[in-house]
């Protein structure tokens, strides 16, 4: 497990800032399972637990980039498994549109990601985190949408 952390290290010393929006019932529970299983992954992503991926407003994504996030992740229950029956289906459509728009204006493709992680997928959660951090380290810091603050 320590190996995972090792490979995520980068020579440049750049540590990406990532916000991970996790739905309470699946992905947050999945991250709990990763914890209980002591699966190690990079610490760059700070989790924000939301009730459902369906409650993920596009404003949250845009705001996170505006505030300087190098990456944003939204993670919810697999299709058909939503605790709220169909919230993740609404999320999927909305996130798809946000992603297309961000790509269109030229934000680097890999900075905004969505994943399905169930409560039983602790290992998948760790993998998603690891992959995301690795990919963003390759792209470097996000400057395009970041506000310049005094």
């Amino acid at each position: 497990m320590a190996k995972v952390e090792q490979t995520a290290k980068d020579e440049t010393g750049f540590e990406p800032k990532i916000v991970a929006f996790l739905c309470k019932w699946c992905s947050s529970a999945g991250s709990d399972l990763a914890g209980v299983s002591r699966l190690q992954y990079p610490s760059n992503a700070v989790p924000i637990t939301i009730m459902c991926s369906g409650s993920m407003s596009p404003m949250f994504v845009l705001s996170a980039f505006n505030k300087g996030a190098d990456g944003v992740l939204v993670s919810g229950c697999h299709p058909g498994d939503c605790h709220y029956l169909k919230g993740n289906f609404y999320a999927r459509r909305k996130i798809y549109l946000v992603q297309k728009l961000l790509q269109f204006i030229g934000l680097e493709n890999d900075r905004f990601r969505m994943s399905w992680v169930s409560a039983a997928e602790g290992a998948k959660f760790a993998q998603v985190m690891h992959d995301f951090v690795t990919d963003i380290k390759k792209i470097g810091p996000q400057t395009r949408l970041k506000a310049k603050r005094p």
């Binding site: 320590a2 952390e5 991250s31 709990d32 914890g35 209980v36 002591r38 190690q40 760790a126």
Partner: peptide, 13 residues
């Protein structure tokens, strides 16, 4: 604030 499952248990640094 979950700093055990989502933090202490999954990181070593």
């Amino acid at each position: 604030a979950n700093i055990r499952e989502q933090c202490a248990w999954v990181h070593s640094d």
